[in-house]
Simulated scan of single mutants.
Amino acid sequence: MAITDAWLTEKVSQRHITITKYADYLWLLDARGVAYLPACDWLIVSDLHLEKGSYLRSYANPLPSLDSTATLTRLESIIEDYKPLRVISLGDSFHDKHSMSRMTTEDRQHLCRLVDNVNEWMWVEGNHDPDLPDGIPGTPCFEIVLDNMVFRHEVETSENRAQVIGHYHPKKRTTITRRRYSGKCFTNNENVFVMPAFGQFTGGLDIDEEVMLTLLPKRSRQVFMLYDKVIFKV
Rank of each mutant, 00 (worst) to 15 (best):
1 M>Y: 07
2 A>R: 15
6 A>M: 10
7 W>H: 11
8 L>C: 12
11 K>I: 01
12 V>C: 05
15 R>L: 02
20 T>S: 08
21 K>F: 01
21 K>W: 08
24 D>E: 14
25 Y>T: 03
27 W>V: 02
29 L>W: 12
32 R>Q: 14
34 V>P: 06
38 P>N: 07
40 C>T: 11
48 L>Q: 00
50 L>K: 08
57 R>W: 00
57 R>Q: 11
58 S>I: 02
64 P>T: 13
67 D>T: 15
72 L>R: 09
73 T>R: 15
75 L>K: 03
79 I>W: 06
83 K>H: 11
89 S>A: 14
96 D>P: 00
96 D>T: 00
97 K>L: 06
97 K>G: 13
101 S>Q: 14
104 T>E: 13
107 D>V: 10
107 D>N: 14
108 R>P: 02
111 L>V: 03
114 L>G: 05
118 V>A: 11
120 E>T: 08
121 W>Y: 14
124 V>A: 11
126 G>N: 06
128 H>T: 02
128 H>R: 08
129 D>A: 03
129 D>P: 03
137 P>G: 01
143 E>A: 12
144 I>Q: 12
145 V>C: 07
145 V>F: 02
147 D>W: 06
150 V>A: 08
152 R>C: 09
155 V>F: 04
156 E>Q: 10
164 V>T: 09
164 V>F: 14
167 H>P: 05
167 H>D: 11
168 Y>E: 09
171 K>M: 14
173 R>L: 11
176 I>C: 08
176 I>L: 13
181 Y>H: 10
182 S>T: 10
182 S>M: 05
184 K>A: 13
185 C>A: 06
186 F>P: 04
193 F>N: 08
199 G>W: 02
200 Q>F: 11
203 G>W: 01
206 D>T: 13
208 D>G: 09
212 M>P: 10
214 T>Y: 10
215 L>E: 00
219 R>F: 07
220 S>K: 15
221 R>A: 03
222 Q>I: 04
225 M>I: 06
232 F>S: 14
